[in-house]
Amino acid sequence: MKNFWTYLKISIKSKLYYRTSFILNMISPIIVLCGQVLLWKGIFKLNNASDFADMSRNAMFSYILIAFVLNNSLNWSTENSLSKDIRNGTVVSKMIRPTTFLSQNIADMFGGVLIQGLFYTLLVIVIFFIAAKDLFVPSFSNLLLFVLSAILGMILRLMINDFFSLLCFFVTGYLGIAWLKNAITNFFSGAMIPITLFPVTLKSIAGYLPFKYMIQVPISFFLGEYTFADGIKTYTVQILWILFFIILHCLIYRKIRINLVIAGG
């Protein structure tokens, strides 16, 4: 565990070393958020209603803000650093340290999540204070249930990302996998639009996949849609999905060691 913190510290230092690039990375999602807010404002104005598919206007804007924090805590560069290491062969340095490959990967991504997540969380808290009357503000107990679910959701996301990154050992380019992963996770996690707005078939498909436990499910706690009893069940499912991806990691890593060809010999 002590090693995990060492890797985490290195990850944070590495990400903060190039400040301009870091700040630019932080700004671009905020522009997309402004676009999303304007779009939903327009939709509610057109419909001239306070509800849209069972979601109140306030709940919808809270959803957008929380989804923004959860989705953008892990940026493109952090998400794909392992894939890039695999493609250029530098991944081998992770394999010769006296620490498990998985914990190094998770620490590396988590460093990015801590910095970016903290910044966006503070930003959204300020927005909640400024525009509280236009937003759904949760009760304290809902907030606690949400925080726990959001942490589990983030761990699950790191594991899913690790899984997709490991696939780069088997293909020649990482961009295809990265874009595919982004499209699938953004869509089925509820980051783009809430899963409650999906058609029935897509909604049932999303129900069998792990992605909604990254964003949609934690936000449901925030919006008070889930009770404490739902919480126990949901946390269990989240933990089971995390374990599933840990086992998958071990199986893929074993396969990699049998037929691995590292770039550059």
């Binding site: 002590k2 062969g89 530098t90 010769i96």
Partner: peptide
């Protein structure tokens, strides 16, 4: 590995050395 570095490339060399001490 001559073709690949074991250093963390974005941080000063001394930081990589300190990390090795802990790891």
């Amino acid at each position: 590995f001559g073709q690949k570095t074991n250093l963390w490339i974005d941080i000063p060399v001394i930081e990589s050395y300190k990390a090795v001490k802990q790891i």
